[in-house]
Design a protein around this nucleic acid. Structure first.
Length: 183
DNA sequence: CCCTGATTCGC
DNA sequence: GCGAATCAGG
């Protein structure tokens, strides 16, 4: 499989997002992690903030017999802040294990991508607040990976009844029925 | 052994 | 340009 514009674009996005080469390769499909790394270099976009990100434990390897992607849990609600802080432990959520808790990449991308703008938008722009900046009236929807640099919270205003802004509340409290495809 | 990215070099 | 093989490291 070659590098189509779309695939290259996805590569750039995921790489920038902080995913490892193997994870990206896995997502793209048809390419090895070496291929991804090679491409990354040719594109001259390696310098990713490689601070706190090193070897990910990986829940399970090929040990999972023939049980691959099962996609069961509908876990849409993000981890609670408390968890995000203390659990900052060594458990990187992977898409691999069927039970891996993972935030929708698309959701994340949308929120981070948009530059600061006004309100009234369908999708609120994250105010990028850190943990300590959260108050009772700020949306506590986490954006990004707690273990990676750039992690922050939505921070937009929320109703006193909800920990999230309207938009994220609508995402968080969806029934566990039909969510969009995860892959 | 698992993983990570970096580099080389034949294709 | 591509990516397997290899290297260096956690």
């Amino acid at each position: 499989m070659g590098w189509t514009d779309e695939r290259v674009e996805l590569l750039k996005q995921l790489w920038t997002e902080g995913l490892s080469a193997s994870q990206i390769a896995d997502k793209l499909g048809g390419v090895s992690r070496n291929a991804v790394i090679g491409k990354v270099h040719r594109l001259k976009l390696e310098s990713r903030a490689k601070a706190s990100n090193v070897a990910a434990p990986v829940v399970e390897r090929q040990a999972s017999h023939h049980l691959k992607e099962v996609e069961t849990v509908e876990m849409v609600q993000p981890t609670r802040i408390v968890a995000a802080r203390s659990v900052s432990a060594r458990s990187m959520p992977r898409t691999h294990g069927a039970t891996a808790l993972k935030m929708e990449p698309e959701e994340v991308a949308e929120v981070i991508a948009e530059p600061q703008r006004q309100s009234g938008e369908v999708v609120p722009i994250a105010r990028k607040l850190s943990l300590v900046q959260l108050t009772e009236s700020t949306c506590k929807w986490p954006v990004g990976d707690p273990l990676k640099p750039g992690f922050h919270f939505c921070g937009n205003g929320s109703n006193e009844s909800s920990p999230y802004c309207e938009y994220h509340a609508s995402l968080a409290f969806q029934p566990a029925s039909e969510r969009r495809r995860v892959r």
